[in-house]
Nucleic acid binder design. Sequence first.
DNA 1: AAGACAAACTTGTATATACAAGACTTTTTT
DNA 2: AAAAAAGTCTTGTATATACAAGTTTGTCTT
Lengths: 238, 238
Amino acid sequence: MKNNKFVAIYQDIADQIQSGAIKPGTKLLSEHELGEKYDASRETIRKALNLLSQNGYIQKVRGKGSIVLDVSKLNFPVSGLISFKELAGKMGKKSRTIVEELHLIKPDDYLRAQLNATTKDEIWKVVRVREIDGEKIILDKDFFNKRWVPSLTKEICEDSIYEYLENELGIHISFAKKEIIVEEPTEEDKKHLDLEGFHNVVIVKNHVYLDDASIFQYTESRHRPDKFRFVNFARRSL
Amino acid sequence: MKNNKFVAIYQDIADQIQSGAIKPGTKLLSEHELGEKYDASRETIRKALNLLSQNGYIQKVRGKGSIVLDVSKLNFPVSGLISFKELAGKMGKKSRTIVEELHLIKPDDYLRAQLNATTKDEIWKVVRVREIDGEKIILDKDFFNKRWVPSLTKEICEDSIYEYLENELGIHISFAKKEIIVEEPTEEDKKHLDLEGFHNVVIVKNHVYLDDASIFQYTESRHRPDKFRFVNFARRSL
DNA sequence: AAGACAAACTTGTATATACAAGACTTTTTT
DNA sequence: AAAAAAGTCTTGTATATACAAGTTTGTCTT
């Protein structure tokens, strides 16, 4: 852990809201009182509260205080940058990952554009099928530049690539641009997924960036439509 | 406009990035230099930069500076809380809104749960079809509590309800929880939309909240799948 | 020439103060 | 009793200072 005061305060309050120790609809202590409780200045408390506000935990009202929001309804955030493993774990479902492909390729035009790569770059291509409760629901196609990820094994892909990147390689994901569209299933979709007669697949295209704003990964996640759900919290920008 | 310094600075820089005056990949002036330029303290500059960072305009890198990101790709944010009218305008398409229903109803159980209403409340039900380039693409079902919106006319619904609320009634939208799922079209969908043989509709369920965290509106937006696109920028929470 | 070190940048965190503005309670005036 | 005013809470904005920590650049030593 870092010795980061306002993040620690944020975590503490967020945990209390998540666990239900602080109930939706109630008010938090005032900024002044929180400052005393956590032995921090008001500005530090405000940074923590702003984080809570951004992530949908509280609503600040001028002159009144910070109202706790009902976070239970947006329980599992397919929204954020959470990984499949974390997600399946949270939902308490039996899940399995089948690695269909894992090799280095030369990027074509489309991929070079997505990954901002040159013709000299080598790209990891990982194709995985996600099985939940015995049904093959999701087809994930991941592309990494070998520049960031020198080696990759079947075992890592079956577990969690993200854990490997963060813990082993020390790579830090910073932000992502997502695009959601619906298309007809390709032959590849039909081959790998249990489509059960569905005529569409939901495609989540994901561009993932590192701390230094360099693009790191491009992912296509192809879902059977009945098992797809996306939840999102958004503040009015301005 | 408010006399709000850090928002003004945010707007100024955001506009420059949007218009291309500041190019992606370049660096902004340092916080110190920006402080001189805008005659503001460093903390004020930092508030503006944090807003830019949250909205995907820049990436801050410790020790280096603020790198300008490429916002051109996430041009039209179906993500935010932007309205259909604004959206259609930005895309430069010919659009039309057909009001199919507009009346007060007594809420059933489902609606009471969504709108946090009592059996005594009266609810505005607005059903609108959105036509783009001559095709009926979207079916919007809006529900407002009469408590917030006393009167509503066909003309307002054909224009922009949001503009009416913000400008005429002085109601301020604060945040929204979105949920995206895919389902089979209902008879109502088939009746109102030009489905062209598509077997699914994309449903965007939207819970809209006011400044004081009270729920204000529930919306179901039902899209023909080929015309649906959702773009989203998300930072790794923590 | 190569490496080590130092200096000068950058952003990040924490604190303090002052005042503005909205919400609410209490007191005073009418 | 009702209305107005004052006082006291709350959060919002703007500023200043100090130091920590990461990056880059230049200089000095080896």
